[in-house]
């Protein structure tokens, strides 16, 4: 039972659109806007940074021969060699031989720290297709660049040894990260990524020039 009086002609000349319920068009628009917002929320979740992107290392890049200056250390690659096997002499003159079905890639690396002593974690060979090869465990870490402290004031030289299939060589880059805590990890540590300059010709030269036996260790 309505008690509303009929509208007076005089007042109808200034209609108040605001008092009307939302039109269908508007309601449909609201629904579409709601769906769009929900879809946008899902899409934003999809582009959110992954754990690795948020806490992973910050990478400085360069080419072979360059001195790449990262936040806490500088690094450079002075040479790349290939080898079909590696002969390791330990301090007691015991000789071991490491062999591979692929190729050992020996990267000569130098590094210096800026303020505080640093230590490298296991280096990674990053193939052009994105595959990552960790440094081989056939060579003891004490013989590689991961062993000495990288200290300010001078360059520490060492090698990183990888065992990779020959096909992964072209376009490969070496990644040198720092060690991180075992339990408490620091986020966004610096790392250096250096292009080894292995185009097709250089790769062929590396494979052709691979030594049969590469000696490592022994008394210096």
């Amino acid at each position: 039972m309505s008690t509303v009086t009929p509208s007076r002609p005089g007042t109808t000349t200034t209609p108040r659109p605001a008092s009307r319920p939302p039109s269908r068009l508007r309601r449909a628009g609201a629904v579409i806007a709601g769906i769009a917002l929900a879809a946008a929320a899902v899409a934003v979740q999809a582009v959110a940074l992954e754990h690795e992107d948020r806490l992973g290392n910050l990478t400085w890049t360069g080419r072979i021969g360059d001195e790449v200056v990262a936040s806490r250390f500088s690094a450079r690659v002075t040479g790349v060699h290939g080898a079909k096997s590696i002969q390791i002499t330990d301090v007691t003159d015991k000789v071991e031989k490491a062999t591979t079905s692929g190729l050992f890639v020996i990267v000569e690396v130098g590094a210096t720290a800026h303020r505080e002593p640093q230590k490298f974690g296991p280096p990674v060979l990053l193939a052009e297709d994105g595959k990552r090869y960790a440094a081989t465990d056939k060579v003891k870490p004490s013989l590689t660049i991961t062993h000495p402290y990288i200290q300010p004031g001078w360059w520490t030289e060492g090698v990183a040894v990888f065992e990779v299939p020959v096909a992964a060589l072209t376009g490969a880059r070496i990644v040198l990260p720092l060690t991180n805590g075992f339990f408490i990890k620091e986020a966004n540590l610096p790392e250096v990524e250096i292009d080894l300059g292995l185009d097709d010709a250089a790769t062929q030269r590396l494979i052709a020039g691979a030594e049969d036996v590469y000696p490592m260790g022994g008394k210096k």
């Binding site: 008690t3 509303v4 009086t5 007076r8 007042t11 108040r16 659109p17």
Partner: peptide, 14 residues
């Protein structure tokens, strides 16, 4: 349609 015109204080019954 009635909503387009502002309702007035109503004194009359229906």
């Amino acid at each position: 349609h009635a909503a387009a015109s502002p309702a007035l204080p109503r004194r009359q019954p229906a």
